[in-house]
């Protein structure tokens, strides 16, 4: 995305600035009170802040309640199949370097059916931003156990309570090799805006997990991190490198081991940026380098010349 260049300043977007009004599309079909509304509202604000050219924003998703997101955002976008939005979005990102690609989806979509795609899109460091709206349940299909449902949670597929160990999303995400990993909460709009903005600006694969309550099938799932419901909101304090003694205790976002430690905290854990690193090149850059090298070797031959010379060797 466009932040890598210090100079010159990004060109001013043509036409009217992007506003929530322009960005609003179909009225969401979510249940009243669903956490996903707040994620959507925050995303509008992110786009208002970033002011990318309207036609260059892509909003994409798989299948699930949360995955209906693209219908509600007036940008180029699409609604794909369950669990496979990431490889599709990788095609978008690698197919056109100018685009700003955002993928939205649920915990089932991302960690269950799409789990392997998550690992590989992350390890390849494809330049895109992925927002997982985790409600710890299958919403669209009406309350089955999800890969983040806690043990004991009663669902239609575990009427006596879930018995399988849930995954730890932060540990899983760190393990994939994602170069930006953050966690947020749908009751914290400013925090979501900050996390998604940073994720969007990150060059490479950035992922934000947002705890987003399903009021219909898992009400109260995340109360323990909502202060007005008696919970604790624990923000990650990032290192400022200001030389103060307090700074020693702050979290170094480039420190993977420290990030894993945070990920291992007892529920409900902390929120903020767990890990951020620009050390690895994106797949977009690596592929572009292959092209540059190949073009040098072939001395910028035209497509026609290339094919003709290949065939002349097969005579």
């Amino acid at each position: 995305m466009s932040t890598a260049l210090a100079t010159p300043p990004p060109p001013a977007p043509a036409g009217a600035p992007l506003t929530k009004k322009i960005l609003t599309a179909d009225h969401p079909t979510w249940c009243p009170g669903c956490g996903d509304f707040a994620v959507l509202a925050s995303f509008y604000r992110v786009l208002e802040k970033l002011q990318y050219p309207h036609e260059k924003i892509v909003t994409f998703a798989g299948i699930g309640c949360s995955s209906r997101f693209p219908y509600f955002v007036n940008t180029h976008g699409g609604h794909y199949i369950h669990g496979r939005a990431l490889p599709f979005a990788a095609g978008i990102s690698l197919g056109n370097e100018d685009l700003h690609v955002f993928v939205f989806g649920g915990d089932g979509d991302g960690f269950s059916i799409g789990g392997n795609h998550l690992v590989h899109t992350a390890r390849k460091n494809v330049n895109l931003t992925y927002v997982i709206m985790d409600n710890s349940v299958y919403g669209l299909t009406k309350k089955q156990t999800s890969p983040t449902s806690p043990i004991g949670f009663k669902t239609k597929t575990d009427p006596t309570g879930a018995i399988d160990q849930p995954i730890n999303p932060m540990r899983t995400l760190l393990n994939t090799g994602a170069t930006f990993v953050a966690r947020s909460h749908a009751t914290q709009v400013n925090h979501m805006v900050e996390m998604m903005t940073r994720a969007a600006k990150h060059p490479g694969f950035s992922v934000v997990e947002i705890l987003s309550e399903c009021v219909e099938f898992y009400a109260g799932a995340f109360d323990s991190s909502i202060p007005r419901k008696g919970g604790t909101w624990s923000l990650i304090q990032e290192k400022k490198n200001d030389g103060t003694p307090e700074d020693a205790d702050r979290h170094d976002v480039t420190d993977e081991v420290a990030a894993f430690k945070l990920a291992g905290q007892a529920w409900p854990g902390s929120f903020g940026v767990f890990y951020e690193s620009n050390a690895r090149k994106t797949k977009n850059v690596l592929e572009a380098e292959l092209v540059t090298k190949a073009r040098e070797r072939t001395k910028n031959a035209s497509d026609l010349q290339l094919l003709q010379s290949t065939f002349s060797k097969m005579r």
Binding site: Y80, I81, G91, S93, L94, N116, H117, E287, V291
Partner: peptide, 25 residues
């Protein structure tokens, strides 16, 4: 790459067709 293009080796065939449709998109 000689033609300015790219071919991605994916994690499986589902990802492969998905990435290809993404390119087409």
């Amino acid at each position: 790459p000689k033609y300015g293009g790219l071919f991605v080796q994916c994690e499986d065939e589902i990802a492969a067709i998905s990435t290809a449709i993404g390119f087409s998109y």
